[in-house]
Design a protein around this nucleic acid. Structure first.
Lengths: 206, 206
DNA sequence: CATTGTGAACGGGTTCACAGCA
DNA sequence: TGCTGTGAACCCGTTCACAATG
């Protein structure tokens, strides 16, 4: 099965498969099936088999999948067999929490740059990082070659900072600002806004 | 057009419409069209019109939509014409950041309860809240009648705490733990995991 | 015999295109 | 003329069902 343009929605599920499989490995499970994996994730077995079939044949009929092998395959597909450097832009409460978060490292990511435009914060330490002036974003991003940014600035600044990041060579942005970002084709944006999810849920409550 | 079972995916877009409209209002825009709104959100005009048509006829042909009126309609549909109380479970770095976050109030939410099981933290203040013992979740949730919880505990505890919350009467959970939660039918779970989104993006990078 | 991989059938969400109307 | 609301057409992702196989 060729890899020609796998639907994005399929790609989006692979990290969840990977997460569940790594949990299984932790529990000492060495072999699993599409059924078992699906039950853990609330996804149908057929869906999982179909998704995986876009990339190859990873299972054995009658047996299922080797947890270890499937983890390796998914990590390769998702380009996770390396450490990805992140830039953190905006060190308010949320940015600080992300900077201190311990969970990035063993899932393939580490923050190597932190920016803020508040003179009070510039030069201060946050974890092992030194907060740098947002004005230096262009040169520092270029120097370090970081490709992914996490954006935790106020909504009013988000688009301007985004333009700056893109100009500096950033290729993917995880946007925490409550605003839709406009970017050139080829730049990837994912949006995280907890309040949108809360407002989605309240529709069903009364 | 009747309101019989609107697709969930449609409901999920309404908060985004609302957000963009509130931004427009801030900018002094009083009238808009499905085209303009769509361009701001990266959504097609037809999609917006079709989505809104599930709930009524809110526009005027040739003119478009009154920003103010559409905001009111969306707020009513999403049950946002009231303040929703939230319980925060787990006051680590992320939980603390959420507790301090100023953006909830003017979008219809406020945190009224905070729990942790760390004796060091119980009794401490976080913003205007006092951190309470997780052991008291059942009685406190019942007393206060809070219906929505934000879960920011370690993955290992998440399912157990979830069972406790559901038992106590919580009807919706915003889950920050990197694990799929199993809940009874009728309980709403939304999942936020930034690393899943990062891993989604790295597929397209190299 | 359990479970995969997959073509085919299905279903439902999105887009199209246009009548209707201010 | 400009834009809405909507049935119909289209498209695409999910599910079904089964041949293949260790």
């Amino acid at each position: 099965m060729a890899e020609q343009s796998v639907p994005d929605i399929v790609i989006g599920r692979l990290p969840r498969y990977l997460q569940a499989l790594e949990r299984m490995r932790l529990e000492g499970i060495t072999t699993t099936s599409s059924l078992e994996l699906g039950q853990r994730l609330g996804i149908s077995a057929a869906q999982i088999r179909k998704d995986l079939s876009h990339f190859g044949e990873f299972g054995k009929q009658g047996t299922g999948y080797s947890v270890e092998f499937l983890i390796e395959q998914l990590r390769a597909i998702l380009n996770l067999n390396r450490m990805w450097d992140l830039a953190l832009v905006g060190v308010g409460d949320l940015g600080s929490a992300l900077a201190r978060y311990q969970g990035f490292t063993n899932r393939g990511f580490r923050i190597v740059l932190a920016f803020d435009n508040d003179p009070q914060k510039i030069g201060k330490r946050i974890g092992h990082l030194v907060i740098e002036d947002s004005a230096t974003i262009p040169e520092r991003i270029r120097q370090t070659g970081v490709k992914i940014a996490m954006l935790t600035v106020p909504a009013a600044e988000a688009q301007k900072v985004t333009d700056c990041l893109v100009e500096a060579g950033i290729r993917a942005i995880l946007n925490y600002a409550p605003i839709h970002l406009v970017v050139p084709p080829g730049i990837i944006v994912e949006h995280i806004d907890p309040i949108l999810k809360l407002q989605h849920m309240t529709y069903y409550l009364d």
